[in-house]
């Protein structure tokens, strides 16, 4: 299975970031990473990339509960920016609150809601999903 090019991880939890990077490497998920600690940092940097015409990530793994700018606020801002490239956004959260699941589904740009913890197995499933699209 051919890995995707760039995976973007937006999460404030360094343990999760460490873990998911390793899992992605194990699953041969992507070639490179973009890591941001909160929504604001992600938004600013992604905007710069768009402005500079640099390559954008294929997949964004977005946490919901973050300081400064949370996942929802990021989604609201980011989905307002016109981009040519198809970016698949996954919400990855510890929250099992059905309200959160429902809200995530209301965003057209959000492909799926993944309840943490993420294992090598379910990451592989995501990858297959992506290829299928």
């Amino acid at each position: 299975m051919k890995p995707i090019d760039i995976a973007c991880i937006i999460d404030d939890d360094p343990i999760f970031v460490f873990g998911i990077k390793r899992i992605m490497q194990l699953a041969d998920f992507c070639n490179s990473f973009l890591i941001f600690n909160n929504g604001k940092e992600a938004l600013d940097n992604l905007k710069m990339l768009i402005y500079a015409g640099e390559e954008l990530p294929d997949v964004i793994l977005l946490d919901l509960n973050m300081p400064i700018m949370d996942g929802w606020q990021f989604l609201d801002e980011f989905t307002g920016i016109p981009i040519d490239k198809q970016i698949t956004i996954y919400v990855a959260s510890s929250s099992i609150d059905p309200e959160d699941t429902k809200k995530a589904q209301s965003y057209e740009s959000v492909s799926n809601y993944i309840v943490k913890p993420i294992t090598v197995e379910n990451l592989k499933a995501i990858l297959e999903d992506l290829k299928a699209v």
């Binding site: 343990i15 999760f16 873990g19 194990l26 510890s94 929250s95 943490k116 913890p117 294992t119 090598v120």
Partner: peptide, 21 residues
Amino acid sequence: SHNLRSHSGNMAMILDLFKKQ
């Protein structure tokens, strides 16, 4: 629902990773 879950999730994830690596 959230914080405790995310910690236990991390622990499960790291252990899973540990087992594999």
